[in-house]
Each structure stands twice: as C-alpha cells, then as structure tokens.
Design a protein around this nucleic acid. Sequence first.
DNA 1: CCTTGAGTTGAAGTGCCCTTCAACTCACAG
DNA 2: CTGTGAGTTGAAGGGCACTTCAACTCAAGG
Lengths: 152, 152
Amino acid sequence: MQDSLTIGELAARSGVAPSALRYYERLGLIRADRTGGNQRRYARAELRRVAFIRISQQVGVSLDEIRAALDSLPEARTPSPQDWARLSASWRGRLDERIRLLSKLRDDLDGCIGCGCLSLQRCALNNPGDALGGEGPGARLMLPRPEADATA
Amino acid sequence: MQDSLTIGELAARSGVAPSALRYYERLGLIRADRTGGNQRRYARAELRRVAFIRISQQVGVSLDEIRAALDSLPEARTPSPQDWARLSASWRGRLDERIRLLSKLRDDLDGCIGCGCLSLQRCALNNPGDALGGEGPGARLMLPRPEADATA
DNA sequence: CCTTGAGTTGAAGTGCCCTTCAACTCACAG
DNA sequence: CTGTGAGTTGAAGGGCACTTCAACTCAAGG
C-alpha cells in the first residue's frame, strides 16, 4: 500500500500484461525504480503513462511514435494535466482522419451494395490520393485489425 | 490485350505488389491459370477478388476471414453483383463497430482534454465491456495502424 | 527458517502480412 | 535467334507487438 506498484499490480490496474510492461520499458516507453533485490517498483505516474500508451494505440499510433511523444514530456517534473492534454490533443487529427476514411469506406460500400455493381475499383480502390498511403520496404501491417485486448 | 492478365498487369491494375498476389494465391484467396511456360494468367474476375480483399482489409478483416468469405462464393459460375454485394454487406457491421469505437474514443479524448484531468483510466480504458476484446495466446497486432498502400 | 508465489533475465517463439533473394525460365521485340 | 525484361520457385528475412520459456532470485506470511 505504498506509493509504488509492483509489476503485477501495475499490470492488474492497467490491464496490460507484465510481459508487455517489460517490453514497453525496453522500448523506453515507461520506467521503473528498482528494489534492493532488483525488482521493479512503479511510481503512480506510470499508470497514466501506460494508459496514454493504450489510448494512443487505439488511435493507431505505433509504439515508436508513442515513445517520441512521451519523450516530449518534461523530465524534471511529473507531467501536469496540461502536458497530457497536449499529447492527447496531438492525436486528434489522426483519429479524425481514421474515422473519416472508415466512414468514406462505409459510404462507398453502401453505394456499391446499393447499386449492385460493386465496382470496387472505381468506388474505393482507385482513389490513391485519398486512401491510405504507405512507403518503404519491409513488411508492414497495412490495414487494421480491430480486435484488441484491454483486460487480459 | 487478351482476356487474361499477367501478374504484373494485375499488380498494376489492383495496386497490389506481385509478391502479395503470389502470397494471396498461396493462401487460397485468388487463383490463376498457367501458360505452357508456367506463368500465371489471371481472368478479369480476379481483379474484383483482389479489390474485395483490399476493401476487406480496410474494414479490418484478416486474410483468413477474407478467404472464408471468398470460399462462400459459388465455384461453378462467375460471381454475380449480388454475390459481391452479399459479401460486402457482411462486413458492414464490423465497419460500423469500428467507427463507433473510434468515435467513442474521440469523444472520450475530447472530454479528457476538455476537463484537463485526462483521467484516462476512467474515461477510456476501464470499460472492458465496451472496448476491443481479444483472445488466445500468441502475439497479435492488437490495434490498428492506419497507413496502408493502395497504389504501390 | 522455509516455503511459495511473484519477479528477474535473455533468447527464442508467435501471428500476421508480406518482401527479398538466388537461381533460374519465359515471352516477345528486333 | 537472341537479348532483355518479366515471370517462376522455395526459403529466408523483416517489422511490429508482444508472449513464452528456462533458470534462476526475491519478498513476505506462517
């Protein structure tokens, strides 16, 4: 009942598996103090960081970008509500864009279904300027899977 | 200028890389005839299949599920507009759900930003019944990245 | 003290969706 | 007929976000 949480406690409270928390730490997304016996002890503030990470993932931001965002927080002091608000607000455009694209896809799909033609190339694929762009080599997951786990 | 397309032509017209098309074929998502020299020749209808695949991915459906959906098409005849409409319509709920979740996330985020508290756990994480659920072992990409490529 | 559940590490595995490579063969314009 | 760009294969690589494993050590209740 102190001011710090074990990894198990943080996992339970955040809904993120311990293995994921360790992974986040390796990536520099969160940090932990250590006990004499080398066990992690998390400050309460880390709970908020983890929450921000999960939110950001739902927005569709990669861990690498989340790390960059978190790096912009002040190191000296505990981040203020305004700090968090600024970070969250920075995802707002991303979120809007994602919603817009999916809504457009829904409309296109409705149009196709409605007219029965389902000329998908015209409706939804052949609009390169609009649709999702991606660059560079290496395999990426190009398109989203909705399933995720907030409680496991 | 015949009735069939080479893999390069299909790639160009669909915006999907040849390597991806071969991959789709391995997974049983598309099929190709072969020339005497063992090269793939795609019927025009395959273009529509590929379009459907890409659309489905945007909706957030896995290739495995897409394969299952495509398997439900009649094998005897070329799928009719109604066949495609049925398949597309079957994703409609998924799409709606995704849009709904993202919209809710946006509202939550606005709320948090608005009040400055950013109590993310209450706002957006601690609603397990609502949020994205996932099951089973093995690493999955839990949350979507919007970037994708429809023209490369 | 001692047991037992929780925590530690690095390395390897998993699932998805492809891409890249090497070492060929094909198809067609000239 | 020949050169060249396009196509073929299986195997391996790659990025992401983790999980799993083995082989330990810690922490705390009885």
